[in-house]
Amino acid sequence: MTYHSPTFTAPPVAVDQDVREALAAGAPVAIGISGGKDSQAAVIATIGHLDLIRHTGPRVLVHADLGIVEWDASLTICQELARHFGVELITVRRKAGGLMERWEARWRSSVERYCNLLTVTLVPCWSTPAMRFCTSELKTHVITAELRRRFPGQLVVNATGVRREESARRARQPISDRKPGLINWRPVLDWTEDQVFAAIDASGMRPHPAYRCFVMSRVSCRFCIMSNGPDLAAAAAQPETHNLYRRMVRLEADSGFAFQGARWLGDVAPGLLGDGLTADLAAAKFRAERRKAIESRVPRELLYVKGWPVRVPYQAEAELLAEVRSQVAGLYGFDALYLSPGAVMARYEELMALKEVREARRSPKKAAGRLLDGRTWDEMPGVWA
Rank of each mutant, 00 (worst) to 15 (best):
I68H: 02
F133E: 06
Q40I: 12
Y3R: 09
A41F: 04
Q260T: 07
H208P: 01
R83F: 12
E70F: 04
L277A: 00
R375W: 04
H84N: 03
D65I: 06
S363Q: 12
S176Q: 07
R362C: 09
Y348K: 13
P381T: 01
R325D: 10
R148F: 09
I77E: 03
N228E: 09
D378R: 13
W377G: 02
A236L: 02
E112I: 14
A159V: 05
W103C: 13
P187R: 07
T46G: 04
A293W: 04
R362T: 15
R59D: 03
R222L: 13
K139Q: 02
P209F: 03
P209W: 02
A210N: 01
V123M: 09
L251K: 01
L89V: 04
I175D: 04
V142T: 11
A316P: 01
M226F: 13
P11T: 12
W126M: 07
R311K: 14
R247W: 01
K292H: 14
H63Q: 05
A269Q: 03
Q260N: 03
N228F: 06
M248D: 00
F334H: 07
Y3I: 14
A202L: 07
D72N: 12
P230Y: 05
T160I: 15
L371M: 15
T128L: 06
P6S: 15
W191K: 05
D38C: 08
V196W: 00
T140S: 11
L339S: 15
P11Y: 12
M205T: 08
R148S: 10
R247C: 05
A10N: 00
G48N: 08
T376R: 09
V268D: 00
L52D: 15
Q195S: 10
V162G: 02
R291A: 07
W308R: 10
L372W: 13
E80K: 02
G57D: 12
E165Q: 14
L23E: 00
R370K: 14
R206T: 09
L61M: 07
V305N: 10
S340Y: 08
R247H: 05
L331C: 08
A269T: 04
A237S: 11
P341K: 08
R246D: 00
Q260A: 10
K37G: 08
A234L: 01
Q79C: 11
A168S: 14
G261H: 00
S255I: 02
P209K: 01
L122R: 04
G181W: 01
G204E: 09
K366L: 12
G229A: 09
K355A: 13
A368H: 07
L89F: 05
K285V: 13
R361Q: 15
T121E: 13
K292Y: 10
P239G: 10
T46A: 15
V249P: 01
L117W: 03
L189I: 14
P239I: 07
R361N: 15
A258K: 02
F286W: 09
A318R: 06
V123L: 10
E319D: 14
P364S: 10
Q173T: 15
D194C: 04
M345S: 10
A279Q: 06
N116C: 11
G98Y: 05
V219C: 02
A258H: 06
A210S: 07
R20D: 13
A45C: 11
A64V: 06
T160K: 03
L182H: 04
S5G: 09
W71I: 02
R375I: 04
Y3H: 15
A353C: 07
A159N: 03
G274Q: 00
A168D: 14
R347L: 12
A22L: 11
L302S: 09
V111S: 08
A283T: 00
